[in-house]
Amino acid sequence: MATLQKKICMIGDFSVGKTSLVARFVRQAFSEKYMTTVGVKIDTKLVKAQDGREVKLILWDIAGNDALTTATTSYLRGAAGFLLVADGTRRPTFDSALNLQKAITAQIGNKPFVVLLNKADLSDQWEIDESLIEEKKQQGWKILSTSAKTGMNVEETFIDLATQMLEA
């Protein structure tokens, strides 16, 4: 029996750490050096969902932008779920993530997603308002603090989304 395959899109403003999260998840690697993504980078990883089923995740790491462009929209086709990534040390990136969520849902319909507040290792520079996070959680959003640098919550996030996608 063929392995299940699911496409996940990584979406968010530039320099929020989407590529680093994928690198941490796929290769257990991290680099302090910032390299901007142009277009989209494809990676894959075989994971076991929470119910024990194996699923091959096709990870689309899409170039950062604060809004949905035509190119980004074309990359979203066929996505089974998405990760909305924001930089916890830059408040505007969280606002971008909120806007992107609306735009993506309008494009591809309701798909499982998780919001990641990345760079949790830089907690002393944190700019995201806890009350806003709570408000979104009350609406059923899944919001997690992650750190591509330390690996905090990275694996768990992808497994969680994979499970959600399989259940959807």
Binding site: Q5, I42, T44, A71, Y75
Partner: peptide, 26 residues
Amino acid sequence: VTEQVGFLEGLLSVPHTQVLQFVRVA
């Protein structure tokens, strides 16, 4: 083909030509 070319997952059966720019593969 999707088992051999992973990034095509979910992209087949297009109604008209689609162009994906700058797709960086493994």
